[in-house]
């Protein structure tokens, strides 16, 4: 097992993980920018959170420090809480204005 993981760290250096996380984060930003569906925008935010998680895990594995993985664990907890509350807000908005188009939500008071 240790041989395999040592080989992996040689085959896939840290730059590749950095590049992958950057691409994933940029795709999330792109999704938030070009879509209007609130749920799809929400999923893009999840994609961005996962890019950060992957980068933290990669740094922690290459740095031989367990603190990074604990941080990833906490980020997952916060993401779960955020998804629950966010979807509740979306359901409530849909009940009020019968749409999830982001342009309909431009005013907070109606």
């Amino acid at each position: 097992m240790e041989n395999i993981s040592a080989q992996i760290t040689q085959v896939a250096p840290l730059e590749h993980y950095i590049l992958l996380s950057a691409v994933l984060f940029s795709l999330g930003v792109l999704g938030v920018l070009i879509r209007r569906n609130v749920i799809v925008m929400f999923m893009s935010i999840e994609l961005m959170l996962n890019a950060c998680n992957l980068l933290l895990a990669a740094f922690s594995a290459f740095h031989s420090s367990a603190a990074g993985q604990v941080f990833v664990f906490f980020i997952m907890i916060v993401a779960a809480a955020e998804v629950a509350v966010g979807l509740a807000i979306i359901v409530m908005l849909y009940r009020n204005i019968h749409s999830i188009d982001i342009n309909e939500l431009s005013k907070l008071k109606w």
Binding site: T9, L14, A22, F25, S26, F62
Partner: peptide, 28 residues
Amino acid sequence: AGLLLVTFTGTLKGTESIIASQPYDDQI
């Protein structure tokens, strides 16, 4: 988004030299 990607890669490019000196521990 493309500009953001370029910025990220440019910023994070210099970090691996800091990490490279650490010994590898597979138990964490």
